[in-house]
Simulated assay, not measured.
Amino acid sequence: MLISVIIPVYNTMQYLPHCLRSVEAQDTDDIEIILVDDGSSDGSGEYCDDYEKSHENVRVIHQENSGASAARNAGLRAARGKFIHFIDSDDYLADETVYARFIKEMAPLSPEIVFSRCKTYSVDLTEVVQEQPPYLKEGFFEGDVLCDVLKHKYQMTMTSPVNKIFMRDFLIRNDLFFCKGIQHEEDEWLPRVISCARTAYFYNEFIYAARYMRPGSLSQTDTEERRTEKALSRIYIAVSGMEYMEQKNLAPDTLALIAEYYWDYLTDACVMCCQFRSRENKEKIYRELKKNRRFFDSRRYLKSRNRRMMGLMFKTLGVRITVRIIGIRYGK
C-alpha cells in the first residue's frame, strides 16, 4: 500500500462511521487503514472489529487506554505504506479525491512532509468555524523547512498533524514518535518532525475537515487542574524542544525563530499560573520552572530584547517574582 491511514479511536462511536466512510470513498485502492482502539467503552472497539472483517485493507489494534500518542505510535510501528496520514476518528477527509490527488501530484516527488489545509466545522457540520489560510507558496520545497515555516508563521503547521502527510521511512529513521503523558502532544512532536525535514510540498487545497470541540472532548474540559496539567505540558514542550533543537546544529536564524516559539509556550504557562487560585497548583509550576533553569540560558538565541530581559529576570529575580511580572505584562 502507498498510504497508511492511522486512526486512533477512543469512544467516538457517534462519529467513527462518518470518518471511515470518507476514507472508504477515496478514489484509489492504494491505501491501508489502521484502526487503533485505545480501550474504548462505547462500542467503538467492536465496530472496528466488524469493519475489519468486511474490508481486506483494514487492520485493528487494541490496547489499554493509553492516550492518542500511544495509539498513533502503535499505528506508525504497524504501518506498511510509504506514506502516513493520521486522522482523528471524529473528523473526516474533505472529499473523495484527496488521496488520488496526492498520489498523482505529490507522491512521485517523495516529499518528507506534505503541508495541506484544514477546514473546521461546527459539531453538527452546519457552518465553517475556521479555515486555515493558504501558504504563501505552493509546490515542492527543498532546504530548511523549519525556518521557512517559522518565518512565514503558517497557521496550524506546528500544532496539527492531520493536515499533513508524512513519509514513513523519514519518521522511523529519525525516531519521530509521539511523546506520551502530556497534553497537546502534537505541539511537542511537530517541531521535531519539521526540524528533521529537508524536503516538503506545500499544497493549498483542503484535504481535511475537523469538528470543532465535540461534546466530551478533552479540549472542552476546563478545570484548574486541567489547566495546571496544560501549563506543565507547555513547560515540558518548551524545555525538551529547546534541548532537542540545540543538539541539531541549526542555522542561527532558525535557532532564533524556534527559541522565540518555545518562549511563547513558557510565557503562556506563566500567565496561566498567575490565574490559578490554588496555591498548590501555583507551586507545581514554580517547582517545574526551578527544575528546568537551564532553559533560561536559551535567551541568548532570542532577537527580542524583551524576551532576553525575561530570561535574565528568571536568573536574577527568581521564578516567583518573574512569573508575576509576566502575568501582569502578558495576561489578559
Rank of each mutant, 00 (worst) to 15 (best):
L255D: 10
M158H: 13
D29K: 14
T120F: 00
G318L: 05
L93D: 07
R227W: 10
R234Q: 10
K104M: 12
C270L: 10
L312F: 12
Y208K: 06
E229D: 13
G327C: 05
Q130T: 02
V129G: 01
L150S: 14
P17K: 08
E96M: 05
S110F: 12
Y301I: 13
T159S: 13
D222T: 03
I31P: 00
V129T: 04
D148I: 02
K230I: 06
M242T: 07
P111I: 13
R299M: 09
P17L: 08
D268Y: 06
A94E: 03
G143H: 12
Q26V: 09
I194R: 11
E186V: 01
G75H: 03
G45P: 11
D268R: 09
I182W: 12
Y15N: 14
S160A: 05
A25C: 11
K303Q: 14
E186Y: 02
K82N: 11
M158K: 10
D42K: 08
Q275F: 07
I7A: 01
E260V: 03
Y154W: 15
F178K: 05
M13C: 03
C118I: 09
D297R: 07
I7F: 00
I113L: 08
V60L: 06
E96D: 14
I172D: 09
M272G: 01
M313S: 13
T254Q: 04
D29A: 14
Q275W: 05
Y261A: 00
F177Y: 15
Y154P: 06
K282Q: 15
M309F: 11
D37F: 08
D27L: 10
F115H: 05
T221M: 12
E112T: 13
A259L: 07
A71I: 02
Y208H: 15
L232S: 09
E246G: 09
F296V: 04
E138Q: 14
K153I: 04
E246Q: 06
Y330P: 01
R277L: 08
Q26Y: 12
D91V: 01
I328E: 05
H62I: 10
P134H: 10
L250M: 13
M242L: 11
R72Q: 01
L109M: 13
E56Q: 14
S304L: 12
A25H: 09
G81I: 04
L16P: 04
M156W: 08
S195R: 03
R277W: 04
H62S: 14
M106P: 04
F86G: 01
A68G: 03
E246V: 02
I326A: 03
L171S: 06
Y51S: 00
I103D: 01
P191A: 02
E112G: 08
S278T: 01
P215C: 02
Q155D: 11
R324I: 10
A269L: 02
N281R: 13
A78C: 10
A259N: 06
E288T: 12
T254H: 03
D187Q: 12
C19K: 09
T254P: 03
V128A: 01
I7K: 03
I194E: 11
E280W: 07
N163W: 01
A197C: 11
A100R: 15
E186A: 05
T126D: 13
R168D: 08
I285H: 06
N73H: 07
S298R: 05
